[in-house]
Design a protein around this nucleic acid. Structure first.
Lengths: 132, 132, 132, 132
DNA sequence: GTGGTCTAGACCACA
DNA sequence: GTGGTCTAGACCACG
């Protein structure tokens, strides 16, 4: 698993790290129960601060993506995050709708979005089998 | 046009303000050329600082949603924002894909997203005619 | 003489008005001694504030482009503005150099500027004879 | 890099600051990737408010001269600003032509301007090698 | 220690 | 009255 960070980006590094790990799980490059590098190892590997890795791990644990054990280290949670409930779906809308509204005013159509989603889900499925 | 802000949210107030204004334009509650309240008026209306309103206005101007005239105040840009180009679409993917991946792991399906989008675009069209 | 103002511009209206009058003099559309409309007439003609026209006229008088007489009204100064002295030339550099530096970093070359200037002076000469 | 501001000038301080930084880049006193002082450091250095410095930095970032990183601070953008396009060149004319017209009426000739430009570009090249 | 956000209040330019 | 500029000081997010 290769972590690809963009230090020029506006997105905080710990957020990018979270994204990368979630992506890897979605692509099944990381399997449930699989171990992740320790905070120290990953931090020195990528060349970022301990706290940054730790923050990402803690939040991923909080969201149910990871388990953190004193001895066994960090592993992918076998069950994954809680399934989307009403609260989550409302949260999702709250995040997406401003993006949609902006895009709409820039002439991005409903169809464009459908294609974008299909493209994303297709890419996931492909990478599941071919990648790594 | 009613501005609805959440002061508890971790989304900056000026961002929320931008969202509300973009929504209102998308819903055609605000028409091209229409005037917006002055920074001072809106600020005291919402109960926030005029600089916060100003920041939102300035960024919306920068993005092509608004025009700011010397003494005539702030108006909706008749032409609206620049249309989505390749850069914008890549930016859009960069923002959306992490959200999609997270949702996917919470069992939100491709179909769920399609419905979400249709729901959003339908809501826009409805509000265009019914609202205000 | 047609006054062309851009109310969307960042440039103050009284500045634009000054520019238009100076242009007209440079193009010899306005001759030394010729009368300009009164403050009131011009203001109502263009549809702007009295004060705005007055401010432009006063500054043009200050710079030696106009004379303002109580009875005879506003006329083009026969002698025109004082000729460029050292102070003026330093002032000119102070204004132009930041523009040049910015343009330089955007790959505008020395030759581009030479052409721009030739183009400007050629345009002046042409309009002197043909226009109005 | 020495910042020279004129607090008596009617050019806003943040504009003067922008000019100074653009000059320094043009003179290659500041190299792509090089770090600039933090907003706080520069502000206290010059004796102005940190928000004023921040405004200059933000606008230079917007124009592609700088990059602002989370904790690494402010650096010169390796790629520099976008290259001059048609829009920029029209904008340039709009700014320069009124200046040319005024200067022309003060007997500044085409040749004077050619010399001014050559002088500017020569100065840039000299300072590139000698300065700092 | 870095920039980001928000508040507060002052003065000025513009129309 | 409008926005533009500048100052001042506070708290937070990031690393």
């Amino acid at each position: 698993m290769y972590i690809q960070l963009d230090f020029e980006s506006d997105i905080p590094i710990y957020e990018q790290l979270k994204h990368e790990i979630i992506f890897a799980i979605a692509k099944k490059q990381l399997s449930p129960g699989e171990r992740l590098p320790s905070v120290r190892a990953l931090a020195s590997d990528i060349g970022i601060n301990l706290h940054t890795v730790n923050k990402a791990y803690q939040q991923l644990k909080q969201d149910g993506f990871l388990q953190i054990h004193r001895q066994r280290g960090v592993v992918i949670d076998p069950d994954g995050p809680p399934k989307a409930d009403t609260i989550y779906r409302e949260h999702l809308q709250q995040i997406l709708f401003p993006i949609f509204a902006d895009a709409h005013l820039r002439n991005v159509t409903k169809q464009d979005f459908h294609e974008l989603i299909d493209h994303f889900y297709d890419a996931l499925e492909k990478e599941e089998t071919t990648d790594e």
